[in-house]
Design a protein around this nucleic acid. Structure first.
Lengths: 223, 223
DNA sequence: GAGTTCTTTGTGGAATTCCACAAGAGAAAG
DNA sequence: CTTTCTCTTGTGGAATTCCACAAAGAACTC
């Protein structure tokens, strides 16, 4: 079983429950940190001391202390940075987030080993996840498994995300065209931008472009 | 001090921390329920048995068991219903939500007594809130106090919310006009709808209506 | 390589939204 | 009662977006 576990979780009321639950399962003292920056530096220290952590359990969103400035502000960034300094560390995400697009993107782009949705049975699911990941498997809790397998999870490519973000931030179609030409992104003609937006409207079954942005916003596709 | 406390909180990993923390403060056993429906029925039972609860601590969002159908799905609804059956019960909201508009609306429209943002110091803030509310005061934790006092919290009236929701759901300006005429909502001419949208764009400093919807979406003003 | 399909871009026109000027209606102030 | 102000609605025209048809080019098949 894992011997050195580190947890990134800002909410103090959560920490208590998670730690005690893990201790029972693994018979080791898990360490929690309430900020991403602190977590990353602890992991770096551990590598130098040749006592690296073997499992990171991380939340996704953090209500950070506004009196201090922070480098890393989200779990996604934290995981990215951690994988850079220690590629072989196992990572389980433990978050309230249940949007399929976000869960899928974590497995696809961040190479995580497990995803557990906080909820009614979050803790027992987390224990299952830890066991499975220790055996070298990946694990998704039922809630997120359901989310992942539901009718074709829409994934947007980088071009589409950029386009939608520009729209959401008040760019007009010809401004987007100019912006893409500047950045050397193709296709970039006004006409192509227009067409791409039309196709996205179709794909999401949106009557107007306003509704399109509202929908992708709600699905967490452009955050 | 409060003698009968009931908690509505879906996340199991939270419950442990909250309950133990409250027990120390109040010297009573607080009861937790993981669903809104259950919480409401427990409160009703208690009234009938003439042992009513005197404090409700509620989360706002619930990841509910999808295998069961639920009447009440959000903390807001729960609070509304509870206040109907027992107007004098004290209510503290304990949630991760930090959007000013949402916090303000809870005090203004739902008549809550305290708001504590889950976070680094959530539990100690919750304890402060319980003490203050017991003295008959209201309490907002520093995080949400900061949110409330920041540059004029934008509040939208019901007309504006309806208008924005229709826009977000793919209605065109003249469809909105027709819809308002049907429902007897005024003003409802195409021209007035147009003007209202323009004013909202101005107010939110949005270059396009698409951006306007993106902004109010992000602030939780139309959810 | 010829044929087929898909993407990109163009053009013109329709639909929709945006904007400036203004008349009427109603509320508030003097 | 008159004046002033604000809100609603109207009109016309500009800007933007939407849509149908189509040509050029890239990619893929046989």
């Amino acid at each position: 079983m894992f011997k050195r576990i580190i947890i990134a979780e800002d909410i103090d009321s959560e920490n208590l429950g998670i730690v005690s639950s893990i201790n029972v399962l693994t018979q080791t003292e898990a360490e929690t940190n309430q900020s991403c920056d602190k977590t990353l530096s602890r992991i770096k220290e551990a590598i130098i001391k040749e006592k690296p952590y073997d499992l990171l359990i991380s939340d996704l969103s953090f209500n950070l202390d506004t009196r201090i400035s922070h480098n890393i502000t989200t779990g996604k960034e934290l995981i990215h940075q951690v994988k850079n300094v220690q590629p072989d560390i196992k990572v389980i995400v433990f978050s309230g987030e249940d949007k399929p697009a976000i869960i899928k993107s974590l497995f696809d782009n961040y190479n995580i080993d497990g995803y557990v949705c906080k909820g009614l049975y979050g803790l027992s699911e987390l224990k299952k996840a830890i066991s499975q990941v220790h055996f070298g498997n990946t694990y998704t809790c039922p809630v997120s498994k359901h989310a992942l397998h539901q009718s074709n999870v829409t994934q947007l490519d980088s071009y589409e995300v950029q386009l939608l973000k520009l729209l959401a931030n008040g760019y007009k179609q010809d401004e987007i065209s100019l912006h893409f030409i500047e950045k050397g992104i193709e296709p970039n003609s006004k006409r192509s931008i227009e067409d791409k937006i039309r196709k996205l409207r179709q794909e999401f079954d949106a009557k107007t472009t306003i509704q399109l942005i509202h929908l992708v916003d709600g699905m967490g596709l452009i955050s």
